Amino acid sequence: MQTEIRFPAGNTTLPGVFTLPDGEGPFPGLVMIYEAFGMTDEMKRVARDLAADGYATVIPDLFARGLVRPLCVARVLRTVFTGRGQALDDLEAARRWFAARPQIDADRIGTIGFCMGGSFALLLARTGLYKVSAPFYSTAVDVPRACPVVASYGGRDRLTRGVPEKLSAQLTALGVPHDVEVYPDAGHSFYTRTPGLMGELAKRSPLRAEYHEPSAQDAHRRIVTFFREHL
């Protein structure tokens, strides 16, 4: 079941998408952070796929705060680089709303994110509030402490060159369980399909961004296996 919701966030409410598996709960849950394209049908599709494996999700619409969308997008992206900002407060508000649902096991909440959202997933991994983090093709984020991490990157993606090695070294030094995989034939955004002109431009960019089915399928298998062990 997938429904549109609103959750309290400071002095306002923000929209989001709440997805539940079939059957009886409470279910383990994932706070999902979308890529820079925002709340697309692909992000909703990913949430439904995770629900089929038994994981509830909430996708907060971080770009919905404020009247001028480009400014809101810029503020959220700035948080990726600074590690500070309203977006982190909004994610915490979404997590609290999510954890309070009777269908959710509040002691078994992780996070998953894509591109911009992957960097947020690593920021959240440092908070001590999540059991597991699954960043996809995130840019470099220092992790002075972290929950278990399962990370996925494309070997043809110039944007994240060197990032998986750095992340794996940091997690090894911390003694944190992790699975960091680089798919040599995949580029950026290999897990999702980017439609239309934006998708065509992304394919031709240095990101080599396009859906790569073998890598996407293996990444899905890996994250679910990791979740079953750590979430």
Rank of each mutant, 00 (worst) to 15 (best):
E181G: 08
G128I: 13
L159V: 13
V163G: 09
A140T: 03
D107L: 13
R156K: 15
I112Y: 01
G118C: 14
S138R: 02
E181N: 08
G175P: 06
G113R: 06
G117T: 04
L122N: 04
L124K: 07
R158Q: 15
V176T: 14
S119K: 00
R145F: 00
V150I: 10
K166V: 10
R145A: 06
D157H: 09
E181K: 14
Q103I: 15
K131G: 09
D157G: 05
V180W: 02
V180L: 08
S138F: 00
I104W: 12
A151F: 08
C115E: 05
A125F: 00
P135F: 09
C115K: 14
V180C: 14
L159I: 06
L124G: 11
G154L: 11
R158G: 03
D107I: 03
K166A: 09
A134W: 05
T172D: 03
R156F: 09
A106R: 14
Q103T: 15
L129A: 15
I112A: 11
G117D: 13
G155L: 10
Q103A: 15
S119P: 03
L122F: 11
P135I: 00
V180H: 01
S138Q: 11
L123Y: 00
E165W: 06
R158I: 15
Y130K: 08
G175Y: 01
K166T: 11
V176K: 07
S119I: 01
A134V: 11
S119T: 06
V163Y: 02
Y137V: 09
P164D: 07
A121Q: 09
E165I: 09
D105Y: 00
R145N: 09
P177D: 03
R156H: 12
L122D: 09
S133P: 07
I109P: 07
L124A: 13
A169Y: 01
R145K: 11
R161E: 12
P148T: 14
V132K: 02
G117E: 03
K131L: 14
I104Y: 15
K166G: 09
A121T: 00
G110D: 07
R108D: 11
A140L: 14
K166F: 02
A173E: 14
P177G: 04
I109Q: 05
I104P: 05
A140I: 07
P164R: 06
V149H: 10
Y130V: 14
S133G: 10
F120E: 01
L171Y: 04
V132C: 05
P177L: 03
G113N: 10
G175R: 06
V132S: 08
R108C: 07
A140P: 05
P177T: 14
G155H: 01
T127D: 10
R126V: 00
G113P: 05
V180I: 12
E165D: 11
E181V: 15
A146M: 11
G154Q: 13
Y153T: 10
A146R: 08
G175W: 02
L167T: 06
Y137R: 01
V132N: 01
G113M: 05
V149L: 02
A121P: 00
T127H: 13
G117V: 07
T127E: 13
G118E: 03
L124R: 12
C115N: 02
C115S: 15
A106H: 06
V141D: 00
K131I: 07
R156I: 04
A169T: 06
V132H: 00
L124S: 09
